[in-house]
Simulated assay, not measured.
Amino acid sequence: MDTSSSPAAVAPPRRRTVIFWVSVVCAAALSGVAVWMLAGNPAVLAGHPLLPGILLAAGAAGVAWAVLLWLRRDVPRPRSLPRIVGAWLGRLAVLVFAAGLAWLNPFAYQPGATAEAGPTSDFSVTETNAAVTMSPEGSATAKGLVFYPGARVDARAYQDILAPVVGAGYRVVILKEPLGLSLLDGNQARGAIGDNPDITTWAVGGHSLGGVSASSFALHNADIKGLVLYASYPVESLRGRTGLSILSVSGSSDGLSTPAKIDASRQLLPADTEFAAVRGGVHAFFGDYGNQPGDGEPGVSRQAAQQQIAAATVAFLGRL
């Protein structure tokens, strides 16, 4: 007996309509988030290629799903309870995935007063899929800094604040992290070091979550001589790590890496760690990417704060 058209085997018309439109929403979410991020945020295509690759695949899947839904819109399909439950869970997973992609939308570089004033010294900038490299012009350098950006922050947002470091004669490599999350490739600095064999003395640094990865890399790589933490702190103790100089720069009004958190991190850092606090500085002042949700209220201008941050960094690297 053929049961494919019986009421128990085929979803009722109203249910099929609901399923159809929920599926349309899922397909639109996939393609919509891809278009929104790829076309609306220049940091996506300028960053690590993993995110735009995933977005292109998601967008294509959304379009293909929408076309399939339209072609099969009037075709009744048998449904058992397990298949119905699985279909709804699958659609929920698609919506969660689309929301996750939207969350990964990076903070784009927003040039500030420092960039508008122009560079204070001559340097060259080389950009690849993996990093932004800044090198001083006209003079050889033996020291370098590999920098891990904060979570979901455009690598180019650190060009201006680190430009004085380049002006002081150091090469700076700002990493483009997979999906904007340094924890996905904590050893990414090793590739940057390998790409610059002429540099003999290396420091690593990072902002916020990037500082966590930089700390871990410095802990497990004895050739690293310096660690620069911008509004950040390690999750592992570095007290037993010999031959490593550390600078921690924070903001007194930071709402994310709060002064209390920075103070608590002292127990994980060597006793000779240098601490510098920018009075009135906030989390977003350690780069040029606009405001950040959850941050504090600044009590100093961005330009004045960044001058202090850069000066402390240049002085520290000069002592390595």
Results as ranks from 00 to 15, higher is better:
Thr3Gln: 14
Pro13Gly: 06
Ile19Arg: 14
Ala28Asn: 09
Ala28Leu: 14
Val33Ser: 11
Val33Trp: 04
Val33Leu: 02
Val35Phe: 12
Met37Arg: 08
Leu45Met: 14
Leu50Gln: 13
Val63Gln: 03
Ala64Tyr: 04
Trp65Ala: 15
Val75Asn: 08
Pro76Arg: 02
Arg79Trp: 15
Arg83Asp: 12
Leu92Trp: 12
Leu95Val: 07
Val96Lys: 06
Val96Gly: 00
Ala98Arg: 04
Ala99Thr: 07
Ala99Tyr: 04
Ala102Asp: 02
Ala108Gln: 08
Thr114Cys: 00
Ala117Ser: 13
Gly118Pro: 05
Thr120Val: 11
Asp122Asn: 07
Asp122Trp: 04
Ser124Tyr: 00
Glu127Ala: 14
Ala130Phe: 13
Val132Asn: 06
Thr133Ser: 09
Met134Gly: 07
Lys143Phe: 10
Gly144Gln: 11
Phe147Met: 10
Ala151Ser: 09
Val153Thr: 14
Asp154His: 03
Leu162Gln: 02
Ala163Arg: 01
Ala163Gln: 02
Gly167Asn: 10
Gly169Phe: 02
Arg171Asp: 06
Arg171Leu: 14
Ile174Asp: 03
Ile174Leu: 01
Pro178Ile: 05
Gly186Tyr: 06
Asn187Met: 11
Ala189Trp: 13
Asp195Leu: 11
Asp198Tyr: 00
Asp198Ala: 15
Asp198Thr: 15
Ile199Phe: 12
Thr201Lys: 14
Trp202Ile: 12
His207Trp: 11
Ser208Cys: 05
Ser216Lys: 14
Phe217Ser: 09
Asp223Leu: 09
Lys225Phe: 03
Gly226Trp: 00
Leu229Gly: 03
Tyr230Pro: 02
Tyr230His: 06
Tyr230Asp: 00
Arg239Cys: 04
Thr242Glu: 11
Gly243Ser: 12
Leu244Lys: 03
Leu247Glu: 01
Val249Tyr: 01
Ile262Lys: 05
Ile262Ala: 03
Asp263His: 03
Asp263Lys: 11
Ser265Pro: 08
Ser265Gln: 07
Leu269Ser: 08
Leu269Pro: 04
Thr273Glu: 04
Phe275Pro: 00
His283Trp: 08
His283Met: 06
Phe285Tyr: 13
Phe285Leu: 02
Gly287His: 04
Asp288Leu: 08
Tyr289Ser: 11
Gln292Met: 14
Gly296Ala: 11
Pro298His: 09
Pro298Cys: 10
Gly299Asn: 03
Gly299Phe: 02
Ser301Glu: 10
Arg302Leu: 11
Gln303Ile: 12
Val314Tyr: 01
Phe316Gln: 06
Leu317Trp: 06
Arg319Met: 04
